[in-house]
Design a protein around this nucleic acid. Structure first.
Lengths: 151, 151
DNA sequence: ACGGAAATGTAGCCCGTGCTATATTTCCAA
DNA sequence: TTGGAAATATAGCACGGGCTACATTTCCGT
């Protein structure tokens, strides 16, 4: 039982450099930004549709209560992703809009790839909602290349 | 501004049945079980390697402190996924072992698919850690079919 | 066999993300 | 124009999941 001095992952040949802990720590970091990504994307959508993003609409689209949406918007504000005045709509800052654009592009790409490998569109759309946050730039590039190569 | 009585998603043609809220609610539900999945999988690995899963090893592999791992194990216990005696190792129940098997199979499949579409193995391994939790049975089946069809 | 190091457990803190209940503000229609 | 409905804000609760600090137990080497 003396495995304290073993180099991590030695012997199994799967991961010479990235340790388990790295991967999990990475996943946790992503999890903490996923909510911001969902909100900025949604606020962008609502702004495009209605000219503004209102708390009630945000809450309904996300399937949460208004106070939850309101609290999240406060955090987004603190992070400089949105601006808002009391009892008024919410609007993305440049940083927020940039995040929204990136998230949206990633979302579309993930859905396209899933469909390309045979996933039914409804399942692709459903699963992409969670998957999209965890797709790295490297993987995204690979998806693009794959999709381009198909026609 | 009267969109209160609009059918959700009407007009964009992307999602006739699954509303946005459904997708987000689904993603939140998955997020809450992801931690359990990570723990059961890891405990299975450690048990296979060392004959038992010890708190210290669990914590190190996940990149968290011992108290965090300990608290999580208490939750796993409460959920009937593991058994443990004070100051002793942690062991999976049948339910926990079943979850571990399922998670591991899913993980492998996701990694294989990512690699199959051209993602570098290290990135595939890294991204799969987050992605795996969000892949539905339907999508999993599609992955299998796709991989089978390639050779 | 026993003393110190390592492992484990526990207390208590912080913050996120959900909720309900209640106050406040806005806005539309009579 | 004003009263009531809808929207928004706020307070406070619960729990998850991370941490540090400290107590306790186990275990190994001398």
């Amino acid at each position: 039982m003396s495995r304290d001095d073993l180099p991590p992952e030695a012997g199994d040949g799967t991961l010479p450099e990235a340790t388990d802990a790295d991967r999990f720590t990475n996943a946790r970091a992503i999890r903490s930004t996923a909510l911001f990504e969902d909100y900025t994307e949604l606020i962008a959508d609502l702004t495009e549709e209605f000219g503004e993003a209102r708390i009630t609409d945000i809450a309904r689209r996300l399937g949460v209560t208004h106070p939850t949406a309101n609290k999240a918007v406060l955090r987004l504000k603190r992070e400089g992703l949105v601006i808002s005045r009391p009892y008024r709509g919410v609007f993305l800052t440049e940083a927020g809009a940039a995040m929204a654009r990136q998230v949206k592009a990633r979302h579309r790409l993930v859905v396209r790839l899933l469909i390309a490998v045979g996933v039914p569109p409804e399942a692709a759309e459903m699963d992409a909602e969670g998957i999209e946050h965890y797709v790295s730039e490297t993987t995204l590039k690979a998806f693009e290349t794959y999709l381009d190569g198909r026609q």
